[in-house]
């Protein structure tokens, strides 16, 4: 074990750079998947004849596939049909497709928790369907969705590690490079990466708990 050597300034900075890429990918993906997840959920909720069924089927299929498969598929298989993406974009696309389906289920649950009476009251007081959704249903649903969304964000942040398989220079990838210099660097590099994940995710779960408390 050589902690001093492994934690040389350059190595630590290199691993932190990996964390930065992890955070960047996670942030972009969570924003995109939240927006898309809301759209998918609203389409399902609104019971548009054929479209709602297609979306429901899509969500169910994606939710039941391994994320690693989606990442590999996006990076390696899509070029076969003429879509070529670099590791960064591939990861964002795969994560967004996967997590938006997961979030769609959360949002749908939030929407369904709104009492029917409120909607009927809003409609009878002259609001259109879209207005009812936008002003009455969504704001309430969003509030109840915050904690599960934060925990989904934690999962997403953890899931970015899979992109190491397609050489995205994220945290695990940079850890692997640091540890490969020397057998004695394995444990220190591993511990540092683990600690970084823990710190970031603990911070997020504390935020999530705060939000939950405020709601109650």
């Amino acid at each position: 074990m050589d902690f001093a050597g492994a934690f040389a300034w350059d190595n630590v900075v290199f691993i932190l750079k990996g964390l930065l890429v992890t955070l960047e990918v996670a942030l972009i993906s969570i924003v995109l998947s939240f927006v898309i997840g809301c759209i998918l959920a609203i389409v399902q909720y609104a019971k548009i004849p054929v479209l709602s069924h297609i979306v429901a089927t899509w969500v169910e299929i994606i939710r039941n596939l391994p994320l690693l498969l989606l990442i590999m598929f996006t990076y390696i298989a899509l070029p076969d049909i003429g879509i070529k993406l670099d590791p960064f974009v591939s990861t964002v696309v795969a994560l967004t497709v996967f997590e938006s389906a997961m979030l769609a289920e959360i949002v749908r649950g939030g929407l369904r928790s709104i009492e029917k009476g409120q909607i009927e009251a809003a409609r009878s007081s002259g609001l259109t369907y879209v207005q009812t959704l936008w002003h009455i249903v969504l704001p309430q649903a969003l509030r109840s969705m915050v904690p599960p969304t934060v925990s989904q964000f934690i999962s997403l942040l953890k899931d970015t590690s899979l992109a190491t398989a397609i050489a995205l220079p994220e945290l695990v990838h940079n850890m692997s490079i640091v540890k490969s210099q020397n057998v004695n660097y394995t444990l220190p590099a591993f511990l540092l990466a683990t600690m970084l994940y823990l710190i970031v995710n603990f911070a997020l779960s504390i935020v999530s708990r705060r939000l939950e408390l405020r709601r109650a």
Partner: peptide, 13 residues
């Protein structure tokens, strides 16, 4: 490769 010491290795420094 970026993680094979002596052959293909990205030097963190």
């Amino acid at each position: 490769k970026y993680d094979t010491f002596l052959f293909g290795f990205k030097n963190p420094s």
